[in-house]
Amino acid sequence: MAGSIVTGTVPALAGWAGRGARSIRWYVTSLMGDRAYEIYVAHLAVEHPGEPPLSEREFWVQRYREQEATPGARCC
């Protein structure tokens, strides 16, 4: 983004690196599941507007409880 405002190699590279770092961060956190709460809150806002979301702590407590009730296989 910096590259489009200030012309020059260094800002362009910095902008490129910044975008790259953000993409990696987005990918890793999505893959590992950090964003599950965010997704849940967004879902609730759309599908059940007005329903107060659980707190992040409660959400995770409940999520692990559900995971316990529906175990998924891991491969060999």
Binding site: Y27, S30, L31, A36, I39, Y40, A42, H43, L44, E47, R63, E66, T70
Partner: peptide, 18 residues
């Protein structure tokens, strides 16, 4: 069936990793 937890539309590249 979206429920924000088990049924979630996931970016295809993330789902590939999953």
């Amino acid at each position: 069936k979206a429920d924000g937890k088990d049924f979630v539309q996931t970016d295809r590249r993330v789902l590939f990793g999953h």
